[in-house]
Structure formats: structure tokens, C-alpha cells
Design a protein around this nucleic acid. Structure first.
Lengths: 230, 230
DNA sequence: CGTCCAGTTGATGTAAATCAAACCCAGTGG
DNA sequence: CCACTGGGTTTGATTTACATCAACTGGACG
């Protein structure tokens, strides 16, 4: 339950303003303190229970946060894409394990640096607060999804969310760097159900799937409607 | 989508330090600004989408936060018991509807007063931040529950949580002010499944049920184990 | 060219949902 | 005092969405 950062913490990083930088002027000042970390597919960034001494921002690749039950059941809390912060919501220790969905590079910040920053500029604390609030309301929406929605609705919702984040909304091609099992563990379904449900969506003409890791949204309205549970 | 507070906002309140006051010195300074609100069973405190101008603290009774799907499916986000704050995590608007599970009284705070307080004392902002973080990690635990746990595990987990909050841990008698349907909507189950599962727990001797709205925990260890998914 | 792993598709099983019917009890009103 | 009512609870019978089990496919890679 420690390990974490044996893997590479090398380059000093000056300004990794990723394409998908979540616009939040104040926190970007963190860039001055960042240290680059790289992970290969399935490598662990930190374990649930590890002391939360650092925060991270994804630069390239993708990270998943997950929780494991004694008998192996797994739940993925979220996927983190370039521009996303990881661990800002940690208490003393991390509440989940973070692993690379695909080869990834991140910037690491020392928690104390972040806290010093907040000390000096309360605006940053405020923006952090706002971020947490919106995370929380997303979490609540996802509980509704997990508790009450059908497989179709879950997938529709998932695809739209990925579409909204991933691409700069220009194209309707969505990249899915994670496996079907990952998607299942994120949505509370099995691999097989994810497959079958995607196949259904394809047959009903809502999406196309050029490759297993890419989906093209064909009828966004219909998908949204489905995601709303209509 | 407005309505909200036509119901009673009367007494100036001086120090409603409830029995279950969540120890958080700083936020208690809010008490100077509170206005008492009372609700009857099933009355609405505010609707999802309402502008979030106020926060609340439960004094007596119980509140539920819920979200509704177009076709009537309902999800309860949380139950709020005496001492709990409601709406602190709101953005511009509330992300859920809040209703009284049972007759309840609350204290209402103006959002601007809270923000002024934070301005003056950054310690308060910090404690608020901590509260949000722990809410978030609870939310993540609940996603695991909703996505991956069986009805038994959900009920076990729910009962333990209620036990931990409700009583000052002295007795093992848990009060359940909400209906079976409420519990179901909280756990992603139906009324019937909640009933049957409680019956099972009773038959296996883990709990006793003196009345439909009271449960006595007989074998806490076994319940915990079940809640862990062991 | 085999091995491996993710993905897909089919057959079968099952936990929980749905449908249905009592039951219990607190009010209410004759 | 008791019949009536209605909301919540409980139990039973049946259905179903999804899980599980199993088999096949196809690309990646040594």
C-alpha cells in the first residue's frame, strides 16, 4: 500500500498547457511547480490508502481511478483525460487507486505547494471549491445513473460525456482509450453487456464504430434523449 | 420550479446546537444569522434548478434530496439528519430537490452571509473544503455500492451508516424515519426488494425489527462484513 | 506460426423487478 | 365503539434485464 512513484519523476516542467486545459486561470499558476511523471498502460500512480502528498494533472494518455472489493469486483470512479486534475479532492489519504488506462504522462504537484498557493491567493481556494462542487454534482448524477438507469441509457450517457470532453467538440468522433471491461466497471455493467449494448446502438443507427476504440456519434439528439431516460 | 420558502421563516434563532452537531467549530458561527424554517412531511424545501440563494442546517426531523427522471424513476441522493448541512455544495442552482421525509425544522442561512464569513476567516473556507472532500469520497463509495453490490450488501451498508449517524452510538437501535420506498430509491432497489432483504437479515439473526421504522443491530460485525462485500 | 488478449456473439442462469394480493394500523366519521 | 379508508408494509407468483458461462474471432507480437 505504498510504492507509488518509483516510476520516473524527471523533467522540470515549465508550461504544459494541454489542448484540453480546463479553463481555470488561477490553478494554472501551479505549472511552475510541476514535475513530469510517465506511466505505462496499467501501471499504478498511487494506491487507495496511500498518503496523499501529491496532486497530478494529466498531460497525455488517460488514467482511471478505481476501487476494489475483497472478492475482486471492481468499480471505476472516473476516467481522467488530458487537462484533468487527480487527487485534489483527497483527504489525508487517497480514496481510490489510480492507474494508467493507456501510456500516460502527468505533472505532479506537491500538496504543500498547492496549499501555500491557496494561502497566498484566496481566489484559488475559491476556484478549487467550485471545482469540488461541480465534481460533487456530477457524482450525484452518476449515482442516479448507476442506481436507476438501463444499460442503454448508461452507455448513451457515457458516450455523450466522452464526446463532450475528448474532442474539442469539432468532430463527432469519440476516442475510447479504455477497454470494454473498464467501461463496464465504470457503468456498473459487464464487458459482455457493454458490447451487446453498443451493438444495439449501432444497429439502431445512433452510432457507428469504425474501430473498437472509436465511436462516431450519428444521432446526437436521439442519444441525449436516451441518456435523459426519455 | 420556484416556490420554495412560502412556508414560514419566522423566529430568530440564537444557538440551536443539536445533539448531533457535527463538530466543526468554525461553521457554527453561522448560528448568528440563522432563520428557522419548518416543513411538514413531504413538503418541498427547494426544487432542483432553483437558484441557490440559501443554505440550510437540519435541526429536527429528516430531509431527503432527490432527482427525478422523466418517466418517474426517482433517486434519493442522501438523507439529512439533525446537524447536517444542505446545499453547501450548490453551484449557481441546486442540483436536486429537497423534501421533508418527516416533519422537520431547519435553520436557513443566506448564501452571502456564509460567503462573507469565509472572506473574513479563511479557516472556515478550509473547513468547508474538507467537508466537501469527505462528501465526495462518500459519494464515490456509494457509487461502488450502486454499481456493484447486492441488495443484502446495500442494506447492510445502509443500516450501518444510519446507525453511525443517528444515535450517539450508545444503543444499537436505529431509527428509520423514511419509508421503504425512500430506502429503495436511495439504494437503487424497489420497495419490495428492501422489504424482502430486511426480512432475510432478520431471519439470519443480524438484525431485529421492533417496528417498521426501527431496527436493532444484533450482530454488527457480521453486518460490517456483509457491507464490505466479504 | 502459435500465443495471448480484447472483443464479440450465443446459450443459459439468476437477482431483482414487476405484478398482484393481503395485511396492518392510524385516522376519521358515523 | 366500530366500520371504513388509505397509505405504508409485507409476502407470493411471474417476468426480465443483465450476469454468467462458453465458444469463436481477429489483431499484436515474439
Amino acid at each position: 500500500m505504498y510504492a507509488s512513484l518509483h516510476q520516473t519523476a524527471r523533467t522540470r516542467n515549465s508550461a504544459p498547457a494541454g489542448a484540453n486545459e480546463k479553463s481555470d486561470g488561477s490553478l494554472s499558476r501551479l505549472d511552475d511547480f510541476g514535475i513530469v511523471v510517465t506511466l505505462k498502460r496499467d501501471e499504478v500512480l498511487f494506491y487507495e490508502g496511500d498518503r496523499a502528498g501529491c496532486y497530478y494533472k494529466v498531460v497525455t494518455g488517460a488514467i482511471r481511478s478505481c476501487k476494489l472489493l475483497a472478492d475482486g469486483r471492481r468499480h471505476i470512479g472516473d476516467f481522467f483525460l488530458p487537462g484533468d486534475f487527480i487527487g485534489l479532492n483527497a483527504l489525508e489519504t487517497h480514496g481510490f487507486t489510480a492507474e494508467a488506462v493507456a501510456d500516460a504522462s502527468l505533472v505532479r504537484y506537491e500538496r504543500r505547494d498547492v496549499e501555500a498557493l491557496i494561502q497566498r491567493d484566496p481566489r484559488i481556494g475559491k476556484s478549487l471549491l467550485g471545482r469540488l462542487c461541480s465534481d460533487l454534482s456530477e457524482a450525484q448524477a452518476r449515482m442516479l445513473l448507476l442506481g436507476r438507469m438501463t444499460a442503454q441509457e448508461r452507455l448513451a450517457s457515457f458516450l455523450l460525456r466522452m464526446a463532450a470532453r475528448g474532442a474539442g467538440c469539432g468532430t463527432n468522433l469519440v476516442a475510447l482509450p479504455m477497454t470494454r471491461t473498464d467501461i463496464g466497471d465504470y457503468l456498473g455493467l459487464t464487458t459482455e453487456t457493454v458490447c451487446r449494448t453498443l451493438a444495439q446502438l449501432k444497429h439502431s443507427g445512433l452510432i457507428a464504430a469504425p474501430s473498437p476504440h472509436e465511436v462516431r456519434v450519428l444521432r446526437r439528439e436521439a442519444l441525449s434523449e436516451m441518456a435523459e431516460g426519455a
